[in-house]
Computed example of a mutant assay.
Amino acid sequence: MQTPPAGSVSAPLSSLIRQAIARHGDWLPFDRFMALALYAPGLGYYAAGDRQFGLLPSSGSDFVTAPELTPLFGAALARQVAQALRACDSRELWEFGAGSGALAEQLLDALTADGLAPERYTIVDLSGALRQRQQARLARFGAQVRWVSELPDTMHGVIVGNEVLDAMPVQLLHFDGTQWLERGVVVNDEGFAWSDRPTTLRPPLDAPFVPGTVTEIHPQARAFIATLADRLQRGAAFFIDYGFPEAEYYLPQRHGGTLMCHQGHQADGDPLVDIGRKDITAHVDFTGIALAAQDAGLEVVGYTTQAHFLINCGLVERLADADLKTRANAQKLLLEHEMGELFKVIALARGCDASFTDAPLGFVHGDRSHTL
């Protein structure tokens, strides 16, 4: 049982979740709980505030992402984006989950400096609070930047998403040694608690799982990719996130799964405490992403580590004239024990010139598509 201490959950969000549990027969699958905890309008973690992203806890933030570490991240990514824009014959750029707006600012500045300023930069973000923060940061770009809450029927352009897939709700599975159970959330006299029910759901990989294993499956992330593929008539998409290919994700040794929470730049594994006041996340199954893309008609044109991708895109050369602080922060993007190995980049495309799809810049060295 997991019970939140008094005052750890906002009363309106707690009430909303309790109502949802009651409506679903007094048991709510974890993916629905996670969706409410993160995205309930005006109440969820991403919907009720805008200070999640920051370099240090003193800023009131909960975690740092690559664009907050150094603008060199966006400058390097811009080189790959520029190649894709040319090859896909587009000047339109889309970003999903733009966070603080840092990456959008870096990409717009870098592409403009290279003479390839997007005619339109569209941000898709579910958080009204974050949208306001982004609008303030990107005001100097005027009408070049726009915000939408829904995708058009057709898209032509280049898409980027940094740490978007990991925030999509996941289903939790528990293996008790003889059968798989789906993990959900119930209400008791003390608060919220775990409860498991038998299920026909299974991990995508048949491995010798040990009793007590808890792991995640990612139907919402796969559905998102399928929808995106259905709309993208011509273009490319780049997703950067922490995760593994299927064979590494579902190792028997990873018996605790990857579900994690972040608050005040500290991590914990209890999503039933401080609901709405901390991030809930899970690592990405990149094999699942690749299969969903291919099933929907997209081509997987590259998959590699963040370190290889950024080096291929010229990050190391940019460090030559950088100051000590910038070098130190940029090293965190590359080092194996920091973000360099755990974070991966996957590139998807349809209808773009072979000069890009055969040799995308960020994957020239160290491509790992064969591991998917």
Rank of each mutant, 00 (worst) to 15 (best):
R18T: 11
I21K: 04
A35G: 02
A40C: 05
G42H: 05
G42P: 02
S58C: 03
F63W: 11
P67L: 14
P71K: 04
R79K: 08
A82P: 02
Q83G: 10
C88E: 03
F96M: 11
G101F: 09
L103M: 15
A110Y: 06
T112L: 00
L116S: 06
A117S: 13
S127K: 10
A136E: 15
A136K: 15
L151P: 08
D153F: 07
V158L: 07
V170S: 08
F175G: 04
G177I: 09
E182L: 08
A193D: 15
S195H: 15
T199Q: 04
T200I: 06
L205G: 00
V214Y: 01
E216W: 01
H218E: 06
R222I: 03
A223L: 13
I240Q: 07
P245E: 02
G264W: 02
Q266F: 03
D270E: 15
P271D: 09
G276H: 10
K278E: 04
D279R: 02
D279C: 05
A293Q: 13
G302C: 09
H308P: 00
K325Y: 00
E336S: 13
E338R: 14
E338D: 14
E341N: 05
R350Q: 03
A354W: 03
T357C: 07
A359W: 03
L361P: 05
D367K: 12
S369Y: 02
